[in-house]
Design a protein around this nucleic acid. Structure first.
Length: 679
RNA sequence: GGGGCUGUAGCUCAGUUGGUUAGAGCUGGGGACUCAUAAUCCCUAGGUCGCGGGUUCAAGUCCUGCCAGCCCUACCA
């Protein structure tokens, strides 16, 4: 009984190129889809570019083009890369399509009807220059806890987390402007109304890996589910909400619906009905995703599907991240290798096979060790599998295959019997196990040729029948391997088909030997992988990253000349003049308000040990005392003490800026110690 | 701090419901062959199964404590 299966991979964001980390997922999915098709199931593979959101809007603006132009170019590039890696989508759409807008509307109405939508006003930082609300990652500023500057909008390297509205001296990374708080209405999905249903679904469906189910139960379902902020105010690149003008669906609302919209487009082109795939209990829906988007696919998405009356996922297959040589991929190390760069140095089959040997049904990170990668490809694929065909190909071209299958000591039969186990492993996404079993078969096949010594038969005209029998066995064992590897190595399968003049279309072909046909001239199938090529690949990635950093860094140096005009450079001095000023690193030990003073804060500065100075600084309008405590500042330590109305000031804290709220205290890089002199 | 996962030969891993001398591939050492892409074949080396307790006639396999590593999360996913 043939199954009907719809498969998706996560939608790549139209904001950057595909890299080898992304490919883990697409290769994993593609293998599964090809396996299902080989087994005779009706299986379609749907994907699309994820195109909406602030990041796309900002990037398009920076590049001076429309969003549509940007995402069209990106989609083209993505599809080109996927194609070159043998990722065989049945349809690759875009979330920025009319089909998607329409289905989003349908989901929206269903959520409204189920009374799951609520409205609330929230305050968010707004960039008055760029005229847009700012997501956390577009705000940087000084950590309110430790005073480190240039920290991200939601957390600091000191480990503290906070809201971007807590940042001292926040700046928009888009325009450099100081963001202001602005109120806007947002729409929320009250997910907690589906709490009981979700608990039940997580417990009873087979859709989730056990560790994922545990994670959900322990983290989210253990308490009240928070409302999900599902709208963004204009300007926003996305779909405007029909019954809430000026508000747009958040990109995470329309992205998963893109799975359905893209299916719709496929249906339109193939005379199919969407209901047959998405509103049909007989159709399985499988999502392949990375662990970072677990939450969306296992709580919100099922909730939305349930509410709108679509098929729930039969299975959400979640995989871990890719490391390279045991470390996170990084641009600096050159290990964040783009699909495009990879292809200049290595065959896509290598990566497909290597990932297959590493993938298990668990949510585990996988490691691409550069040495291991080359070893595995060379010894398994070239040395064992391809070698089997390579070593008899020349002989077989003359003899063709025997009419009857010769005695091979039970090798073919054993390999045919192993098919069920291998299929089971593929089905369970346990490719690692499948590859292991297949290589065991290859290990058993090579000794057969070795012991039969076909090269001796070749020299003896009386033994040509024997020679043909040996070739028949070797090539049939090779053919079995090619069939079992077909989901992983489509190119090898094609080459096998060409060699033997038989198209490989079904897993069942592994059960019966191919006999009595001619064999075409053997052509080399796969080259060995040189580790030097991999080194070059990493080098090129490094250079690309460096070049990119150059071009992106440039605009940030576009500084105004106003400060210099306001305060021209002073007269030249000698080094001796400068040496008279004793600048020291000091730690702010105490910082207090001076009740009667308009501009002053009273600071107690430590120079290490017991050495302390009391300093009055005119920074009241710019800094909260609490934010200063613990910070390192640079002070003029040998300034003659000066009596002020509120007490003695024994030095001066250095700072830049015209005054009032625009005062910026000089800091030092990590590692400096109180008491050290500034030279 | 909370949760999850992992810890078996130099490396990557397998070890089914607890049951004979713990396995494979790669690497290393020795040999053979020459059909094959410095491919292949044969032989060989090698591990107190992270550590300590416990249950059992019997534990890598179950329970418990500890140690190490990785990941997630830390009252806005």
């Amino acid at each position: 009984m043939s199954r009907q299966i719809l498969v998706t991979s996560a939608l790549p964001y139209a904001n950057g190129p595909i890299h080898i980390g992304h490919l883990v997922e697409y290769i994993q999915t593609d293998i599964w889809v090809r396996f299902q098709q080989l087994r005779g199931n009706q299986c379609i593979y749907i994907c699309a570019d994820d195109t909406h959101g602030t990041a796309i809007m900002i990037r398009a603006r920076k590049e001076g083009r429309t969003e549509e132009d940007l995402i069209a170019a990106m989609s083209h590039e993505h599809q080109r890369d996927f194609h070159r890696f043998g990722i065989n989508f049945d349809h690759y759409g875009s979330t920025n399509s009319e089909a998607n807008r329409k289905i989003c509307g349908e989901f929206w109405n269903a959520l409204r009807e189920a009374d799951l939508i609520t409205e609330r006003s929230i305050e968010q930082l707004y960039d008055p220059d760029a005229e847009t609300f700012l997501a956390d990652r577009f705000v940087r500023g000084t950590c309110p806890k430790c005073g480190r500057t240039d920290q991200a909008g939601d957390n600091c390297t000191c480990g503290h987390t906070y809201s971007p509205t807590d940042l001292v001296d926040p700046k928009s990374t888009l325009s450099g402007a100081t963001p202001v708080l602005r109120e806007a209405t947002h729409l929320f999905v009250q997910l907690d109304k589906l709490h009981d249903w979700l608990v039940d679904w997580v417990n009873t469906s087979d859709a989730l890996q056990s560790e994922v189910a545990n994670y959900l139960k322990g983290h989210f379902l253990a308490e009240r589910l928070r409302d999900w902020d599902i709208s963004r105010p204009a300007p926003y690149f996305g779909f405007e909400i029909p019954d809430s003008p000026g508000n747009y669906w958040y990109v995470w609302f329309d992205a998963p619906i893109g799975y359905i919209a893209s299916t719709q487009q496929w249906c339109d082109g193939h005379g199919e009905r969407l209901e047959h795939w998405w509103k049909n209990d007989d159709c399985e829906v499988h999502h392949f995703i990375g662990k970072d988007i677990t939450y969306f696919h296992t709580l919100f998405w099922p909730g939305m599907l349930k509410t709108a009356g679509y098929n729930l996922p039969t299975k959400v297959h979640i995989h871990g991240f890719l490391n390279v040589d045991g470390k996170k991929m990084s641009k600096r190390d050159g290990t964040l290798i783009s699909a495009d760069t990879y292809l200049k140095y290595a065959d896509p089959s290598y990566l497909r096979y290597f990932y297959a040997t590493k993938l298990t049904p668990r949510v585990e990170d996988l490691d691409l060790g550069v040495e291991e990668f080359a070893e595995k490809v060379n010894s398994d694929l070239v040395g064992k599998v391809v070698n089997l065909a390579s070593r008899v190909g020349k002989f077989a071209h003359g003899t063709g295959l025997s009419e009857n299958y010769p005695d091979d000591g039970g090798l073919f039969e054993a390999a045919a019997a192993a098919g069920d186990e291998i299929a089971k492993a593929y089905e369970a996404c346990d490719y690692s196990r499948a590859m292991r079993r297949i290589m065991e078969l290859a290990d058993a096949a090579n000794p057969f040729v070795e012991h039969a010594k076909p090269w001796e038969m070749k020299k003896d005209p009386a033994r040509q029948d024997e020679l043909r029998d040996v070739c028949t066995v070797a090539l049939n064992l090779f053919r079995q391997l090619a069939i079992y590897l077909a989901p992983v190595l489509p190119d090898l399968t094609t080459q096998c088909s060409e060699l033997l003049g038989e198209e490989i279309v079904s897993w069942e072909q592994s059960r019966t030997p191919l006999l009595g046909t001619s064999v075409t001239k053997f052509k080399r199938m796969l080259n060995r992988l040189q580790t030097e090529e991999l080194q070059k690949m990493i080098e090129e990635s490094k250079e690309l990253a460096a070049a990119e950093a150059d071009t992106t860094a440039e605009p940030t140096f576009n500084d105004s000349d106003q400060p210099l005009k306001d305060e021209p450079l002073a007269d030249e001095i000698t080094i001796d003049d400068f040496a008279k000023v004793d600048l020291r690193v000091a730690r702010v030990i105490k910082a207090e308000q001076v009740p009667e003073a308009n501009k002053l804060l009273k600071l107690t500065l430590g120079l290490g040990g017991d050495e302390q100075r009391q300093v009055f600084a005119g920074i009241k309008a710019a800094y909260e005392p609490e934010a200063l405590v613990g910070r390192l500042v640079v002070m003029v330590a040998n300034l003659k003490p000066r009596k002020m109305r509120f007490g003695l000031s024994e030095g001066m804290v250095t700072a830049a800026g015209p005054g009032n709220a625009d005062v910026f205290i000089l800091g030092v890089d990590d590692g400096a110690l109180p008491g050290q002199r500034v030279h």
